[in-house]
Design a binder for these strands. Structure first.
Lengths: 245, 245
DNA sequence: GGTTCGAAGAGTTCTAGAACACGTGCATCC
DNA sequence: GGATGCACGTGTTCTAGAACTCTTCGAACC
C-alpha cells in the first residue's frame, strides 16, 4: 500500500527481530557500521539512525573504537533484587573473606574526580580490597575517598573493620544515599592478575557513589567481578525498603 | 587547548543555557531548523543532532509540521505528588462543585474502545461533568463505561453522588488499579465552549483507565484542564501509599 | 454554518562521501 | 617486566544538499 515507514525503522525492525529470535545473541558483535550500511543498501548516516533507535531501546550498545554489541536482555527486572551489588551482595551464606591489598593516594581518573568533586590534579585516597568466596577471589574493589577523609580512615584497621563501620564510628559519617552503575567491561591486566584470571575476560564493573545525608559524596566504589555483561543504573535509598516486586 | 567537543554538543549547550537563563521560556518556539542551522553555521543534520540531545533531556519538544518548542520544566518531580489528577486533584481546599452536563450512549473512539475492550461499533456510556473551582470552570471530565455498567449507573443521582460511590455502593464495584496518561493538547471547540475559553488554547488531557481487582476495565476517564503542557504516564496503586519523596 | 482543497511553513528522511577520534594489540624500547 | 608508540579497525562528527510528510490556515465552495 504505502512505504511510508522510514527506511531506518525497517532496518531497526530487522535487527530487532534478529536479536529477538536469537540469531544475534546477547554480547555478540554486529558487523561494523559501514558493512551494515552496505548490506542494507543505505548510507552510513541512515544506518546510524537505525542503531540510535535500538540503542535507545537498550537493545544494543555502541562502543567507540570497538564495535556495536547486542545488549543483555531486560535487566530492569533483575536489578530490583540487586541491592548493594558492590559489597554485601556477596553475603549469601558463603564463606566470604576480605583481603586488603593496600592503600594509596593517587590522582584519580575523570569519573572518580567528578564523583568526589575533587579538584583537577588533586590526589585522593584509594583502598583496594579483594573479596574471596570460599577462598576463591570473587571481586576486586577499589574505594576512593576524598583526600582528607582518606587520611583519617587510613589509620583504621581496615583489615578487620568494614569501611562503612570505620566511616560511621570513627568519623561519624553515615551513608544516606547511593547511586550505582553496573556495566560490563573486559578486565585489564592488573585486575585480572589480582582476580586470578586472564586479562580481557568479560566482567561486571560496578561504580557506586555513596553520599551522606547532606548529599556530600563520601565514597566512590569501583568493583570488578568476572562474569557476564549488562548495564543499568538505579537509585538506592537507605535504609533499604522491602523489595517491591 | 583542544576543540575536541563536538560541534553539536556546543550548540546544544548554547541552547541549554538560553533555556536555563530564561531567554527561551517554556513553551516558546525556537527558530525553524534551517534558520537555526544557518545561524549556527552548520548543516541541518548537525543541528538536528543537537536538537536530538536536548529532546532526550526533555528540554525541548519537536512537533512535525509545527516547530520545536521549549518543554515544560522537570515534570518528573511534580508527578510524584500528582495522585489522581483526574478527579480529586481539585480537592485542595477550594470551593469545588460538579455540574453534570449530561449522559449519553456513543460509539467510542479507538482509544476508549481499546481501553474498555468494547467490540467494534458498540456503544458505550458517557457521563460528562464540569468541575468548578470557586464557581469558575476548571476541568471537563468525560467518563466512559461499558454499556451494561452504564445502564445501571445511569439510574443513580449522579448530580449528588460521586461516580466512584455509585459504582461501589450500587454495583459493588471497587476500583483497584488505574493507569493514567497525561498529555498536552489544544482544546477543541466543544471542550473550549464548555470550559469558557477559546478553542485552541493549550490544555492538559488526562486519560485514565480504572480497573477492578480482577483487572477488568471499569471506567475510562478523559479530563481536559486548560493550562500548561507536559506528558507523563505513571502507575497508581490503591490504596495510595504515602508519598515517597 | 460547515466542508473541501491547496499553499506555505516546519520537521523528517536520505544520499555520498570526507575527516576525525577512540581502543586494542603488537612491536619496540628502556 | 614495564612503559611507549604506532597502525588498524571501528564508531563519530560533519558537509551540502534534495525530496518527502505533517499541520495549519485561509479561500473557495456547498
Amino acid at each position: 500500500m504505502n512505504a511510508r515507514v522510514p527506511r531506518y525503522h525497517r532496518i531497526a525492525e530487522t535487527l530487532r527481530e534478529k536479536i529477538r529470535d536469537g540469531e544475534l545473541r546477547a554480547g555478540a558483535r554486529l558487523d561494523n557500521q559501514r558493512q551494515l550500511a552496505k548490506s542494507f543498501g543505505v548510507t552510513l548516516m541512515t544506518l546510524r539512525q537505525a542503531l540510535a533507535v535500538l540503542e535507545r531501546e537498550d537493545l544494543i550498545v555502541r562502543r567507540h573504537g570497538l564495535g556495536t554489541f547486542v545488549a543483555a536482555p531486560s535487566i530492569d527486572y533483575d536489578i530490583l533484587q540487586l541491592r548493594r551489588f558492590a559489597g554485601d551482595l556477596l553475603a549469601l551464606g558463603e564463606q566470604v573473606a576480605t583481603r586488603v591489598l593496600g592503600t594509596r593516594f593517587v590522582v584519580p581518573d575523570r569519573r572518580v574526580a567528578l564523583a568526589l568533586a575533587a579538584p583537577e590534579g588533586a590526589r585522593v585516597f584509594v583502598l583496594e580490597r579483594l573479596r574471596l568466596v570460599d577462598g576463591h577471589p570473587m571481586s576486586l574493589q577499589r574505594s576512593y575517598l576524598p583526600r582528607q577523609l582518606g587520611e583519617e580512615i587510613a589509620r583504621a584497621d581496615l583489615e578487620t573493620t568494614p569501611l562503612g563501620d570505620a566511616l560511621e564510628f570513627k568519623l561519624g559519617i553515615v551513608i544516606a544515599r547511593a547511586h550505582e552503575t553496573v556495566s560490563a567491561v573486559r578486565l585489564g591486566r592488573r585486575e585480572a592478575r589480582e582476580l586470578g584470571c586472564s586479562a580481557g575476560v568479560a566482567a561486571f564493573e560496578s561504580e557506586r557513589i555513596s553520599s551522606d545525608a547532606g548529599g556530600r559524596p563520601v565514597v566512590f566504589d569501583r568493583v570488578f567481578i568476572p562474569g557476564d555483561r549488562f548495564r543499568i543504573t538505579r537509585e538506592l535509598h537507605y535504609p533499604l525498603e522491602g523489595a517491591t516486586s
